[in-house]
Structure formats: C-alpha cells, structure tokens
Amino acid sequence: MKRILIIDDAATVRLYHRQILEKAGYLVEEAFNGLEALEKALQAPFDLYLVDINTPKLDGFGFLRELRSQPITQTPAIMISTMAEERDRQQAAAAGANDYLVKPVRPEQLLAHVRPLLGEVST
C-alpha cells in the first residue's frame, strides 16, 4: 500500500484529504507543519507528500528545500495553496514541487493528480 503524508495546519483540510485518499486505498498520515513532516519523513519515508504552502514554523517551501537535501530526496510532492497565480506555480516548481493544486480541491481532482505521481494510471 502506498503511503501519503498530508501536511496542513488546518484540521478540516487534513481530514478531508485523508478521507478521499483512504477511500482510494492509500495509507495516510498527517503533519501539522513542515517540521513535523520532516520528523515523520525521516522516521519512515513516504511515497508522496501533499504539501500546503502556508504552514507555521516551517512552510511548504522550507519543507521541500529540506526534504530535497536529505538522502530520501526525490519522493514526489504536490504543493497545495489558495494562491492561483502563475507566479505561485512557478515558485512551487522551483522549490521542487512536482505538481500544484489550488484550494479548494475536489475529490476527483485530487486523485487525478496523485495517481500519476505514484506511477498509477489515472481513471
């Protein structure tokens, strides 16, 4: 079973994404911010990271920067943000994000972006 880490400080967002992903058969864990996510990733790496940009202490950019500097580095990551401008997408890509989603995210949309990054065919 593929493991996904959801990083978001909003509990409702974590629960919503968790529920969608669990229904689709993934194992899900949660982190409140980038630092907690790094702790968890170092303990046992994940197959995919769903990264909210605005988290306290260490934000999504900081998380990706640190993650990409660790030996576990190349795991795919999707950045999620309320900001929809092209500039924001570019910034995320430059930070090492493989994909970018604008909030609020629809269930089918989330899965359509998650599956290809896990090497699965999107249905």
Binding site: T12, Y16, P104, P107
Partner: peptide, 12 residues
Amino acid sequence: EEPFLQFAIDLA
C-alpha cells in the same frame, strides 16, 4: 457546489 466547504461545515 463546493465539496470541501460542505465537508468542513458538516464537521463544524
């Protein structure tokens, strides 16, 4: 028409 907001409201 917003599934996430509906979900969050139901939780609240």
